[in-house]
């Protein structure tokens, strides 16, 4: 009798644990999952990669235009890796055109894969992005906006899940004192990208850029931050090699650079 009770008890405990695990596990959509190929990054993502059927928000760490460019390249790199088949296309919705296409090509998006959608205002840009997601003809959809409230992000998230298309929302700083990550959002992951000092070279020149990549929030996982090397011409990030002279004296570096 007692053994039976004990058995039932363990059974119940096992069932409970199973259910808990099922609730805790983040539900991945059946769209494509894109790992970064960097163990330190993928292992800390709840799904092990970027969900191809979800909304991902990327913002610059500071209102400077340099950080903004880093965030743009981070987005371009992810989009380029989603659009790796030769016939794939990317839609990029924006309101104020200041992208430079040769720079995007050097992040892995050739001009034949990129379709620009220049909207009158941000509402229109978000509507165009949602259209692109639902059409399902694009490998990735990028939109750059300053403001997107909970409703707008929820709509994008649902459209991305319906269309099995990754939505990359580039949040640009509207004002210097207003972090775009303050407001709540329905995104799967929210990133904050900033520039970091790169490794010094032994000769005059600029080495591969470095970014501070911070995952502010993710569904079913914890936030973290990393220093990574900027994406190369196929959109791939890399882990910086452990540098001996990490804290090189800036005076010496300046004299070498000049």
């Amino acid at each position: 009798m007692s053994t039976e009770a004990a058995f039932a008890e363990t059974d119940r405990a096992r069932l409970l644990a199973e259910l808990k695990a099922r609730i805790a596990a983040p539900e991945a959509s059946d769209a494509r999952l894109l790992p970064f190929g960097i163990e330190a990054l993928d292992s800390r993502l709840a799904l092990g990669g970027i969900d191809g059927g979800g909304l991902h928000e990327i913002a610059a760490a500071s209102p400077t235009l340099g950080d903004d460019a880093a965030a743009t390249l981070f987005v371009a790199g992810i989009a380029a890796r989603f659009a790796d088949s030769p016939a794939a296309s990317i839609a990029w919705a924006l309101t104020r055109f200041d992208l430079y296409a040769p720079g995007l090509e050097q992040a892995g998006i050739p001009p034949s894969k990129l379709l620009y959608l220049e909207a009158r205002d941000e509402t229109m840009a978000l509507a165009l992005a949602e259209d692109c997601l639902r059409l399902g003809s694009f490998a990735a959809v990028v939109a750059e906006v300053k403001a997107a409230d909970q409703t707008a992000t929820r709509r994008l998230q649902l459209a991305a899940a319906d269309g099995h298309t990754p939505m990359l929302l580039l949040r640009r700083w509207a004002r210097a004192a207003r972090d775009p990550n303050e407001k709540p959002s329905a995104a799967c992951t929210r990133w904050r990208i900033g520039c970091a000092p790169s490794a010094r070279l032994a000769y005059p020149g600029v080495s591969r850029g470095r970014w501070s990549v911070e995952l502010v929030r993710q569904r079913g996982g914890n936030p973290f931050s990393l220093i990574l090397e900027a994406c190369d011409d196929t959109g791939r990030l890399a882990l910086p090699a452990a540098a001996r002279d990490r804290a090189a004296a800036p005076v010496a570096a300046t004299s070498r650079a000049a």
């Binding site: 959608l117 220049e118 909207a119 229109m124 059409l135 003809s137 694009f138």
Partner: peptide, 20 residues
């Protein structure tokens, strides 16, 4: 892409959809 482009151009205008 042609149907998608028609729909996007119908919403935002002919000039809004382009390549570089």
């Amino acid at each position: 892409l042609a149907p998608a482009i028609d729909q996007l151009a119908g919403r935002a205008g002919e000039q809004a959809v382009f390549r570089l």
